[in-house]
Design a protein around this nucleic acid. Structure first.
Lengths: 334, 334
DNA sequence: TTGAAAGCGCTAACAA
DNA sequence: TTGTTAGCGCTTTCAA
């Protein structure tokens, strides 16, 4: 029994044809008679032949690979394992790649090494790259070396971007709480380094200003513990709070815990609206009303763009954010 | 300005040396004088040269890539985006690959197409494959074509496996509830197709039998909604229940919601122990006491094994499962 | 220490 | 319709 994996040459020899013919059959391109075609296919199956992606890539020049790049701010890449956002991006991308002969490579860069590695990644990209969570500066730098790039968060002007309407979403969340009769609407924000967090902050501020209500803000760092801590602090300093806008569901889940732990009830005493519609929203108790970010759709569309045409410089598409009412807010008066 | 990416040939020409020399310098192998070395390095930097992974892989025969394979049972690969388990596997693998010149490819196979695709994946694997959630049958088939394989769930005898001690963990969870004074300990189990779920079921049954208590079981399908539905049904049919063992935290979060929605209190009326220690456990309210699965560690070790030595046939390593007490159980009497 | 030359497995002109 | 012949960009003997 031969150890080595069969090559196209083996198939050609056994089938008694040339390698080009085998190649034509395997790639399903015209220029091979049906009888030959079936014979080659049979031999290939018998030998257990599978074309080498590597050789194919080298010969054609195009390696069908999409790179998904996430920069993890904070201590470690543990974030990747914790934040539901990445799983959703992954699921969206994979749904498109299923069937396409394209593979997905994942790169999680610690913030400290991101700058030095980003260039090599940009040069190594083939089908293209999806920037899941990269700062504008790094994204711009990446884009300079690799045109086939799509960012999933607001970023540098040149970089093609699919972005959720974070400002509008945050505004809508506050407006919803206001419509429900809430007047002391506090907010827990994400880190300043995150462009989504920045936009949601803007949306919140615009809204409370518009409604003539006070800006009561705290920082939660986009994780559950941060949300819990921030909520406790807010409640201690502003006991009159009757609603919270929380810039991501993970923090929202923490905020719910904080609120109920002080003896207040959700939604009666304090209503909450989160952001993302991640798994954290449905696992919270009561489950969170939230602004749904169509992450899977966005990621899928990004992947599709890369497979087809590289997006134009400065391309922008904005995805609407949808209110998903759940038990953390009272039903609006009918 | 030249559009094409510079090749090793360009560097050689500009530096006035042969391609072999450039190769030696780039790969840092002996056989190049310091002066030449620095010159080549300088030129390479100026040209922005990065070696082609593809060409290198073809020449050396080894492509440094680890394949992570998940079969998603159920309707779609949406599971991947929802279940926190996968993110943790990913984080564990990535932590090892950071630094190693190895890349990670992800494959999510729908259960319907898994059988036909698994062979091609096995043949295409290079550094090796990690089977995140593959049935014993498919895993065995995979292993026959690719020795460099590690499964993260209990599986066919031949396939090298890193497995959590699910049976012991489930037993310990029930024992803990029993020690806390609980006597009517119900269980919500995962799908029969999942070997982890099977083991946890066994552990639960052994434990209740050992304590002389009734087996009160329901199926929850490993998702939140399933956990919620199962819990409601259990409470309706067995109002005397004073504790629940829930085979994953996602279902546990749903169970907490179900229990509190019937007016019962957690942990006073019904105590809960989950499984996994996933993000769902900390987002639940109250947060779940759970049996922690060291998923990241297991995934990291799997990756490390593949990078070093392919594990021996039938290799087994068992990881202990640790109780993490949180607010969904009462504190044990001091 | 350096260079020349032969591949790695495949694709894609070009001939036949 | 089929085969012949160059490469793709790199590594790696083998000579010099």
């Amino acid at each position: 029994m031969s150890k080595a994996k069969p090559t196209i040459y083996d198939v050609a020899r056994v089938a008694g044809v040339s390698r080009s013919t085998v190649s034509r059959v395997i790639n399903n391109v015209p220029g091979a008679s049906p009888p030959i075609r079936t014979r080659v296919l049979t031999v290939a199956a018998e030998l257990g032949y599978h074309p080498s992606e590597t050789a194919r890539a080298l010969a054609t020049g195009r390696l069908r690979t999409i790179d998904l790049i996430a920069v993890t701010y904070g201590p470690s890449i543990g974030w990747l394992g914790v934040h539901p956002y990445y799983s959703r991006v992954l699921a969206g991308v994979m749904s498109v790649l299923e069937g396409a002969d394209t593979q997905l490579r994942i790169h999680a860069l610690g913030a400290n090494v991101a700058a030095e590695k980003i260039d090599a990644l940009a040069d190594g990209a083939t089908a293209g790259a999806i920037l899941a969570n990269v700062t504008p500066e790094l994204a711009g730098r990446f884009y300079r070396r690799c045109r086939r790039t799509v960012s999933l968060v607001p970023t540098a002007a040149a970089v093609p971007t699919l972005e959720a309407d974070n400002i509008d979403g945050a505004h809508a969340a506050v407006a919803y709480l206001y419509k429900l009769g809430r007047r002391r609407i506090a907010a827990i924000h994400g880190p300043e380094i995150n462009t989504c967090a920045i936009d949601r902050r803007v949306g919140y501020r615009d809204a409370v200003r518009q409604f003539g209500q006070p800006d009561i803000s705290a920082d939660g760092g986009f994780d559950r513990q941060g949300g819990q801590d921030a909520a406790l602090e807010l409640l201690a300093q502003h006991p009159e709070i009757d609603a919270m806008f929380v810039a991501c569901d993970l923090m929202g889940a923490g905020a719910v815990q904080a609120i109920t732990s002080t003896g207040r009830r959700v939604p009666d005493d304090v209503s909450i609206v989160g952001f993302d519609d991640s798994i954290a929203a449905t696992c919270a108790n009561p489950p969170l009303t939230t602004m749904r970010l169509p992450v899977e759709q966005m990621a899928a569309e990004a992947a599709r763009m890369l497979l087809d045409e590289p997006p134009a410089r400065g391309y922008r598409k904005r995805f609407p954010v949808e209110l998903i009412p759940r038990a953390s807010t009272t039903e609006p008066a009918a």
